[in-house]
Design a protein around this nucleic acid. Structure first.
Ligand code: ZN
Ligand code: ZN
Ligand code: ZN
Ligand code: ZN
Lengths: 131, 131
DNA sequence: ACAATATCGCAACAATGTTGCATTAAATGA
DNA sequence: TCATTTAATGCAACATTGTTGCGATATTGT
């Protein structure tokens, strides 16, 4: 028996925030944005549900902080093996599309998923520092 | 004026543990291994120092847990851009040598470092499950 | 509308990481 | 060797982040 999920205000609001953001957001980002809208714990649980439903995907940043991003752009390739970019200046974490990677594992290893994050300076920050 | 670091028992013991391990280890792994040898806080501070001194390097696992591994094998290429492997079964996290990756960033972006971790099943676990 | 139950809020807890400060112990040179 | 300097430690207290249990609430299929 499958358990059916419900469309609640918290879920809608959180998904809207994630979808409207150009970068991946953390639990803390969401909490700050929503304010007193809902409880801290609810955010954790909604994020878990949204991830299970594949409405969003989780990205572990280079510092270990878990972030979430919309899956709208991923819908096409159906995988989350694409590259993520983490700006060391503004801390932006975003998805880089059209960046496939190929690699070979040692003999006997089974591949499941690739997590690739590149750190550096994003275009905005580069432009700002040149001005 | 540079601040000189000292060779203490805690530092020696922690580095020995990391170097003698075939996989990357977490703060918790070290704590369990050392027992009452030194304080929890000391481990945090030693890991920070060892990382600064580039005796070890940090690897963020796919679940966000920070691990540490020896840099002995990295000494040759002087970068930590190599691929890491995370076993979904035994949780092993290790460095994969001889696995260079090339990728292109969008126009205007500056590259600094690449963090690539592949999840899957390690050889040991594959063999075990086939028996 | 109503019953079933997924979800929520709250409180309490657990895990992980940080900070301040008095004490200890490396490293250095006399 | 011994005294001096100060990096490093231990401990306590705190901060942050994530989890769990449970009674109350709200969504959804009928
Ligand atoms: Zn930036
Ligand atoms: Zn992505
Ligand atoms: Zn394994
Ligand atoms: Zn490595």
């Amino acid at each position: 028996m499958k358990k059916n999920t419900r469309n609640t205000k918290a879920k809608a609001e959180i998904l809207k925030f994630i979808n409207s953001s150009t970068r991946a957001v953390s639990h803390l980002d969401i909490q700050k944005s929503l304010g007193e809208f809902c409880d801290r714990v609810t955010i954790y649980r909604v994020l878990e549900r949204l991830t299970e439903e594949k409405s969003i995907h989780r990205i572990v940043n280079v510092d270990g902080v878990i972030n979430y991003a919309s899956c709208s752009s991923c819908a096409a390739h159906h995988t989350h093996n694409h590259v993520h970019f983490s700006c060391i200046n503004c801390k932006e974490l975003s998805c880089l599309e059209n960046n496939e990677i190929t690699l070979t594992l040692p003999e006997g290893y089974q591949f499941k998923e690739a997590f690739l994050t590149v750190s550096g300076v994003c275009k905005e920050c580069v432009d700002r520092s040149l001005v």
